[in-house]
């Protein structure tokens, strides 16, 4: 039951893009076309889940036992950077087709604040899903990370679809580009507000 609540909460209620504002750069940057939005979402999904798993283990099996939690930020960003590199190398060797689809987005992901954001969130925040507020355990953290990245993908793909439509319409000159995209994002965020209170 708790897992279902985590998933609904992370995808709809506390959508990482539309209510937490993490990962806005790719949200605005690569959402011009539906196909690139799908590629980016896939890459982010993969990296967020993997990175959260590794950083969670690192936090509780290395940083906490050694009493050096203050190295958290440095350690996490290094782990993420290294992971992204490794994923890139492995993907190139193992599945050239998948690399073709996701490869160009991978370098951009290191500085996507959603990745570091989710990794930090699961080791610093207490979550409550109906019951008592508590820190997430390993299983919950991975589910949370995966669901969050699904939420990222959902918002990203919806937004790209909207932007493809808007590109065909006449827009006042000063609103062209980012401003009209932001207005669209605002309306999309309003729609997502309808989910609030669900969990």
């Amino acid at each position: 039951m708790e897992y279902i609540l985590i998933i609904i909460s992370a995808i709809f209620v506390n959508n990482i893009l539309l209510s937490q504002f993490m990962g806005i750069c790719p949200f605005l940057g690569v959402s011009n076309k539906l196909s690139t939005a799908v590629g980016m979402s896939g890459a982010v999904c993969f990296v967020i889940t993997l990175a959260t798993l590794v950083t969670y283990l690192f936090q509780y099996y290395v940083l906490v036992p050694l009493g050096i939690e203050f190295m958290q930020t440095i350690a996490f960003i290094l782990i993420i950077a290294a992971l992204v590199q490794m994923v890139e190398i492995v993907l190139k060797k193992v599945s050239p087709a998948l690399y073709q689809a996701l490869g160009i987005f991978l370098p951009l992901i290191t500085t996507n604040c959603a990745v570091l954001g989710v990794a930090l969130m699961v080791v610093t925040n207490e979550f409550s899903y109906g019951g008592e507020p508590h820190m997430l355990n390993l299983g919950e953290s991975v589910v949370f990370a995966f669901a969050t990245s699904l939420g990222f993908g959902l918002a990203m793909i919806l937004f790209a679809g909207l932007r493809e439509q808007i590109a065909l319409n006449k827009v006042p000159k000063v609103f062209k580009g980012i401003p009209i995209a932001l207005v669209t994002a605002s309306i999309l965020a309003m729609a997502f507000m309808g989910f609030s209170g669900l969990v």
Partner: peptide
């Protein structure tokens, strides 16, 4: 709504337009 998420996007959009 301006303190909430949608207001953030909206306010920023209009400020960028104004700045332009």
């Amino acid at each position: 709504v301006f303190v909430l998420a949608p207001g953030a996007f909206m306010a920023l959009a209009y400020l960028i337009v104004l700045f332009k």
